[in-house]
Design a protein around this nucleic acid. Structure first.
Lengths: 229, 229
DNA sequence: AAATCATACTAGACAGTCCAGTTCTCTTCT
DNA sequence: AGAAGAGAACTGGACTGTCTAGTATGATTT
């Protein structure tokens, strides 16, 4: 029902944990409400009154848990980077283990990218971080290095395992190859998604073509033997 | 002196035009000031008082020229898309005409991308449009289709001319190939630039590697004959 | 007894309006 | 050509209404 639960290992709404004390339960509710508010309206557009109301909590409780608006923002942004990284890393391992050859593996990876990274919540999070990059360079920079960059490093390692299994050429710079693959797959749909608003989602049959074509280009450069085309 | 004058055919500060009447001169000053304010602080963060002060103009004059804050924003964003498109289209033509072979042409293109799109003003404009994509879907969507997408279409046509000159394989989908090349070159540096704040600029020697490697991958897929590596 | 609640409050910001006095620009007259 | 005057544009500043981050308080729940 909620699409966000299925992808990218990231869920803005915290799961209900039984037997949890009142205080941590409220804290989670505040984080969930604030996440929704920030994603929807941006940092300046979201108000603390709105957060408290959405969390079903008094404003005083919000300020007991979080020093101020900035800290609340930082906590949310930094909290998501680990979750994103974990989800992607796991997906790499699974996708690649199941694959019999490089083409199959890369196609599966491409589809995973396209599905998870065009998810509305993920897009809104990207927008939020990008929008506030100049206002909170430390927080957003940390999100980038510990979330985004590391997930690409993980993809580089995943590609290296393909090389070790004799499915791909030796990669002089696995991290760069990872960025290249991600760029081949995502540059077009990600830009549209970023610029054209959360509502505008691309047709599903475009994903097939993007995944296939990106895979072929990548294999032409890094695959074994002559290109299969 | 001002880096913005050199790249991407876009200049946020309007040139001084002699013999111009008072009203249009003030209007340009307002646009320039508002551009700076919006790029620096975002839509909500920029205040109309600040715009008026920066333009050296009374607030009343601002509201005489522009109905309200939203219209001012729209005017600025839409005004930039044409300028960006023009700059890139011209650069494609020049770069490709001068090139003797495909490798040379693609490298030059890659360097042009890297130089112009990592320019601070261009980055801030991208951030602004992305940040407000949900608040102003019409304006930002129009910026995307009439600026971003069309410049990629233009790149696709430029690549087609390389094919016609016998320097590149036939392209089944020139537009997609253009996105792929742009993705190969820009995905890594653009993401860092977007997320890590305007201050963090990458080292210049990374550009060389990005341009070279992107070119080689692209040629492996779309070049003539066997890969040159 | 500690946490939380509802509510009210402070202090400041901001979009947009209004007004009385000034400067510019253009037309008309000499 | 140049002076004069009309009307529009512009200015500075005050003002309204609304919103917001953050604090304070006294009652209620756990």
């Amino acid at each position: 029902m909620d699409q966000r639960q299925r992808v990218a290992g990231w869920q803005p709404e915290p799961a209900v944990v039984e037997g949890e004390g009142r205080t941590p339960r409220k804290r989670r509710a505040i984080l969930a409400a604030a996440t929704e508010a920030f994603l929807q309206h941006g940092y300046l557009g979201a108000s603390m009154d709105e957060v408290a109301a959405k969390a079903g909590v008094s404003k005083q409780t919000v300020y007991k848990q979080f020093e101020n608006k900035e800290r609340l923002f930082a906590e949310i942004v930094l909290g998501t980077s680990d979750q994103l990284l974990d989800g992607l890393t796991k997906a790499y391992a699974e996708t690649l283990d199941e694959a019999g050859d490089a083409r199959e593996a890369l196609r599966a990876l491409a589809h995973y990218f396209l599905d998870s990274l065009t998810n509305p919540s993920v897009l809104q999070l990207r927008r939020l971080v990008i929008a506030e990059a100049d206002r909170f360079p430390d927080v957003c920079g940390a999100w980038f290095t510990s979330g985004f960059e590391r997930s690409l490093e993980a993809l580089g390692q995943a590609l290296t395992t393909l090389t070790e299994r004799g499915l791909l050429r030796e990669l002089a710079d696995p991290s760069l190859a990872a960025y290249q693959f991600a760029g081949l797959v995502m540059y077009k749909p990600m830009n549209r998604a970023m610029f054209a608003g959360t509502e505008a989602r691309p047709p599903a049959d475009e994903f097939e073509k993007l995944a296939d074509q990106a895979t072929e280009v990548f294999l032409a450069a890094y695959g074994l033997g002559s290109p299969a085309r």
